[in-house]
Design a protein around this nucleic acid. Structure first.
Length: 495
RNA sequence: GGCCCCAUCGUCUAAUGGUCAGGACACCUCGCUUUCAAUGAGGUAAUACGAGUUCGAUUCUCGUUGGGGCUACCA
């Protein structure tokens, strides 16, 4: 049997990092079994619907690399409407376009007596709940409309009276299921509410739509968040009423704020898009969220998507919520930044640096040298413009910054002019950090200077900063002319 | 309030009856070094609590406490 999983987001804004992890796990489960990973858009709530929601989510999934070109991708049709192409064919797994389907199944339930029309007003429902909670009773629908004669109810509904359709839960027994992550879970049926399955606007609620679609899409494993555990009995009841075989369920633990509450916007960024804009690499985000709740069982920490596909297993997914720890994400990002080739880095860094570079024109190789300077020093790509600022414009700095703590102003006044002369003799062709280091090193030794007495003022001269990369790599990135100009600037400060 | 889920260093976690309770991030110390970063070596730090089962519990059972989720014509 083919393993088929899905990710079914609601287009209510952006893709949440928790959603990304859910999607990733579902994707990994499918791919490692050579199965299919499908997408479905659950847009049955018109009030929370956001126009760009679907597009935003798909963009983030695409950025993260779990929607590959050949499988599922975004495609604009003739009307400019975004469509989802799945496994080669246009699949309208967009719930708002499948209303008749849910309607049909709901009617089937009504006909069988497993669901009923409910004409209660929202006022009555609110009052009912208030009363129940005042009496410290569980809040649930009291089943009033279940008493109405079905033929009469049908007639009233057909006549256009405002109504919803509710699922009729059994009042006895219990529903239990085996969760792939948590083991056996059971709930008494009498505690499960008669959930609305078709709203008064004709749209299905999540509960009906999810069951119908998962069945029709032949989903074998439902991977979703822990918040769905308590409604799973409703879903199971639906499967039973329809006579369908339910899928396997895997309820993932939640992602948490540092204070252990559910990860929320108030305490930091939660959208994948936020992290992209902040200059995090998709590989880092993916690796990081994959490890929030799962690990390979050994000491390895760095996993590519391919390796994750190979080694992921639901059995190793933990049950407890995991704090979304920015420090660890930062570490992952640095690790992935370090692994980038200079070429890859330039490509990824350009969007962040464009403004800083302005009209200046650089060869790719020059840019590569410049960007590589801070590759091991920054945490994210977004830090690059500021970190590299000293390359584009020499910062203003006080003359005493040129003096190393173990040296003196006199020594600097002596070293700098001599150093300029030595450097000036090096040709533009030989202007590489290796050659520069060799020449300056030899000269330092010959003149019995200490390394610090030479390197510190040299580095400050070309960087204008107390902290910076080494002088030779900076000079190579700067080029001979600019390097000597900066040395001249330093000299003039010492006069 | 009711129902459900969960519980190992600050954080992510390993160890499913016998380990000096391991690793990673963060933090601290030392080394390298012109600064920062990187890097090398080392260090601080955890089984929530209480019973029970057992020769022996992080591990199994129960309870307590704590945290979380659900309790909508939202997903």
């Amino acid at each position: 049997m083919i393993v088929r999983t899905r990710f079914a987001p609601s287009p209510t804004g952006y893709l949440h990092v928790g959603g990304l992890r859910t999607a990733l796990y579902a994707y990994l489960l499918a791919k490692q079994n050579k199965g299919q990973f499908l997408l479905r858009i659950e847009d049955t709530d018109r009030e929370r619907f956001v126009a760009d929601g679907t597009l935003n989510i798909l963009k983030s999934l695409y950025w993260a690399g779990i929607i590959p070109d050949e499988g599922v991708k975004l495609d604009a049709d003739a009307s400019g409407e975004n469509q989802i192409i799945q496994e080669g064919k246009k699949g309208s797994y967009i719930q708002s376009e499948r209303l008749e389907i849910y309607q049909k199944y709901a009617q089937e339930l009504v006909a069988k007596g497993h669901a009923y029309y409910c004409f209660c007003s929202s006022e009555r429902l609110t009052a009912l709940r208030e009363q129940q909670s005042r009496l410290k009773q569980p809040t649930s629908y009291d089943g009033l409309c279940a008493q109405i004669n079905p033929q009469e109810a049908q007639k009233r509904a057909l006549a256009g009276e405002k109504c919803v359709i509710r699922l009729k839960m059994p009042k006895a027994g219990e529903t239990s299921f085996k969760d792939l992550i948590r083991g056996s879970i059971s709930v008494e049926n009498k505690l499960v509410d008669d959930q609305v399955i078709i709203k008064s606007d004709g749209y299905p609620t999540y509960h009906l739509a999810v069951v119908v679609d998962d069945h029709l899409m032949e989903i074998t494993h439902v991977v979703r968040g822990e918040e769905w555990i308590s409604s799973t009995p409703k879903h199971l009841q639906l499967y039973e009423y329809f006579g369908w075989k339910p899928p396997q369920f895997a309820h993932l633990p939640l992602l948490l704020n540092p204070d252990k509450s559910k990860l929320s916007k108030r305490q930091g960024d939660v959208a994948v898009e936020d992290y992209r804009q902040k200059g995090y690499l998709p590989e880092a985000i993916l690796n990081f969220v994959a490890f929030l709740g799962w690990n390979p069982g050994d000491d390895r920490e760095i996993f590519s998507l391919k390796e994750l596909i190979k080694e992921f297993s639901l059995e190793k997914v933990g049950k407890a919520g995991a704090v979304f720890n920015l420090e660890k994400l930062n570490w992952y990002n640095k690790e992935y930044l370090k692994r980038l080739t200079d070429e890859e880095l330039v490509k990824l860094a350009m969007p962040f640096l464009e403004k800083k570079i302005g009209d200046r024109r650089y060869e790719i190789s020059e840019l590569a040298k410049i960007i590589a300077l801070e590759k091991e020093r920054v945490t994210t790509l977004a830090e690059l413009p500021e970190a590299l600022s000293f390359i584009f414009d020499l910062p203003k700095y006080p003359s005493d910054l040129l003096v190393w703590k173990k040296s003196s102003a006199e020594e600097v006044k002596k070293v700098l002019p001599e150093l300029s002369e030595v450097l000036n003799k090096i040709s533009v062709q030989a202007w590489t950090k290796e050659k520069l280091e060799q020449k300056v090193g030899e000269w330092t030794k010959e003149n019995n200077y200490s390394n610090g007495a030479v390197l510190w003022p040299l580095r400050v001269s070309v960087s204008g900063q107390d902290k910076s990369p080494g002088p030779f790599e900076i000079m190579e990135a700067l080029g001979k002319e600019e390097s000597l100009t900066r040395l001249g600037t330093a000299l003039s400060k010492m006069v």
